[in-house]
Amino acid sequence: MPKTITLPPYLSARSADDTVAVCGLLLEGGGAVLVDASRLKFADPFGLAMLGATFQMLRDVERTVQVCGLGAAAAGYLGRMDVFEGVERVDCGPPANQRHNRGDSLVELTRLDTPQEVDQAAYRLAHALVGHLPGIDPDEPPDEMSGYTTFDRLVEPIQYALSELLENALTHARGHGFAHASVWVASQHYPSSGIIRLGVVDNGCGILASLRGHPELKHERHLEAILAALQPRVSCNRDLRLNLESVNQGVGLTTTCRIAEHAGGRLVIVSGDARHDTAGKSGELAGHAYWQGTAIALECRRVGLPDIRYRELLPAYEGQYRPGLRFE
């Protein structure tokens, strides 16, 4: 008999505790799993990426996954988002292509396994998301002064954020014995509210392991590690000896957070047993929930994206040195 796990009504960043908890239950133990989705009402890209990552991790260890009880709307939506790849559906609603196809506003779950894939994926996902926004014409003539279109102005901040988040996930996450970690990403635009949501989930070492031993980390706690990672110039390898192959500046996550906030949004970051919402509550996850890796939800308002100026988001430089630079 397969182990039966019931999904909560909401799989989302706002219910991160429940989302992480149920994914943890699915991954526990061994053998086949039957997922009862009869209570599921709503999933956002964070929840989709978490569930999709969990399903794929189960399949990677050859555990059978069946889903039952999905309503027609949820079945269509999750199917369209490719969450069910390799998952058997039992007594669920009809396939996505028969009804409830919401392809005008969402980009399906995507898995990345190598840093080489990040540039192309960030570009493709940002274009796919913005390309589906109502009222946006990717082929409009560019502004004569700037050379940019409205489409470009919307794509760039999303591409920037995805590039930073995905590369972070495929570099930092792969240390400390997690060389085979992957990252999953999903995104959606909600036309009625004008909100764009991204979910980026990895199954790597987590932020605490990545920052262990860093002087900014006073206590070895997941929440403290998340908060430290959001500080400028805190990185697992910023301060290592010179002449390494690559060192990070410790600014990418900070800038990504500021992109979200300047566009009227926020980040929710889950790693280990902790959750931090840059616009809400932070603390340990309820019910001893735990995610081995890092899961990030980015939320922003579409209307705020064209006004993003990266030069206004950089951390203040507090040093004394002003190098001479040759601009032409």
Partner: peptide, 12 residues
Amino acid sequence: RGHMVGTRHTAS
């Protein structure tokens, strides 16, 4: 990609 150069992997 589009108008953006993004990753360390490309820069290296």
